[in-house]
């Protein structure tokens, strides 16, 4: 049958459907290719600044600017050594300080936020609805609004120039985001577990410790990871509360690179910048799945 003899009336439904499917598959293939090109180009642009920073951390200062290349002509490894000791106090100290603050903050956040979340998700008590509404409202409050009175409070307690203002609030469930995240998770756990345990005579504390906690490890881990990343990157808190260079956390120390007059220190500055984000990068690579699920679940930052 030549093509000329085909009239619309002669096309069977099956032929129409096949033609439609073929056209669709062809279109989809072309669209798929376009999409990949778009995605690859976009991700290269996204990632380029970070790779450029990595490359610059290994270049001599006079080759950093005006050079778009990502492969240093000569590897200047001593940038890392120079950066590590560029400030009056070495970065060993800054990394240790950051580690102390971050580890304690993570512990505080996970414990106190899971306590609050357990109360909201599983226990009955009078006034619960009001407290819950208030808790959700604190999500909106900018840190800048409470900063000044908090500062004055800690100043009066003599806590300025210590890590207490950075750590103690974490033990008081200061981050409502994490409470919210955990409530979402706790609510998915079957209530029958609690009820069965209650009938067996378990106290709420026992239920929290023996049932809720072990079953909620993914939620705890997600909160711990975000808490780690945000505390490690936190700048405003340390900026306000820490004035002595020996107490500086890594972000504050990095900032001294640009405020000090040492102009020809770009290589070492980038070297330390790379080291400062290394822990976060590692966490991201290892826990990527948990992080991405956590955002989809709660709309975190």
């Amino acid at each position: 049958m030549s093509e000329a003899t085909i009239t619309p009336a002669m096309l069977s439904t099956a032929e129409v459907a096949r033609a439609y499917r073929e056209a669709k598959a062809k279109r989809a293939k072309r669209a798929g290719l376009l999409k990949h090109v778009f995605l690859i180009v976009t991700s290269l642009i996204m990632i380029y600044p970070l790779l450029w920073m990595l490359a610059s951390s290994l270049k001599p200062d006079n080759q950093i600017f005006g050079d778009l290349g990502l492969w240093p002509r000569e590897f200047q490894w001593q940038n890392y050594w120079a950066g590590w000791n560029a400030l009056p106090v070495s970065f060993t100290r800054f990394f240790w300080n950051s580690t102390v603050v971050t580890v304690l903050s993570v512990i505080g956040n996970v414990i106190s936020c899971s306590f609050a979340a357990y109360a909201f998700a599983r226990l009955e008590f009078s006034g619960k609805t009001i407290w819950f509404a208030l808790m959700m409202m604190t999500l909106m409050i900018p840190y800048h609004v409470v900063l000044i009175p908090q500062y004055l409070l800690f100043l009066n307690l003599g806590w300025v120039d210590t890590y207490l203002p950075l750590i103690v609030p974490r033990f008081l469930a200061g981050d409502a985001f994490f409470i919210f995240l955990m409530i979402q998770f706790f609510r998915q756990l079957p209530r029958e577990l609690d009820e069965a345990a209650m009938i067996d005579g378990c106290s709420p504390f026992k239920i929290y410790w023996a049932i809720i906690m072990p079953l909620s490890l993914p939620a705890m881990a997600t909160a711990a990871i975000f808490s780690f990343i945000w505390t490690w990157e936190d700048f405003l808190g340390p900026l306000v509360y820490l004035n002595n260079i020996e107490d500086y956390t890594v972000p504050l120390a990095l900032r001294s690179f640009i405020s000090s007059d040492g102009v020809s220190q770009y290589g070492p500055m980038f070297a330390m910048s790379i080291l400062s984000i290394l822990p976060i990068l590692l966490f991201f690579i290892i826990f990527q799945r948990l992080i991405i699920r956590g955002i989809a679940m709660s709309g975190l930052k």
């Binding site: 106190s112 109360a119 604190t138």
Partner: peptide, 25 residues
């Protein structure tokens, strides 16, 4: 008792570090 016991850290934080400071400011 149990509800408020678990809520206690958050309650302290809420009054001392959130609502208190907002009113203070």
């Amino acid at each position: 008792f149990a509800g408020y016991a678990f809520l206690l850290p958050w309650l302290i934080g809420f009054f001392l570090l959130a609502i208190g400071p907002i009113l203070a400011s």
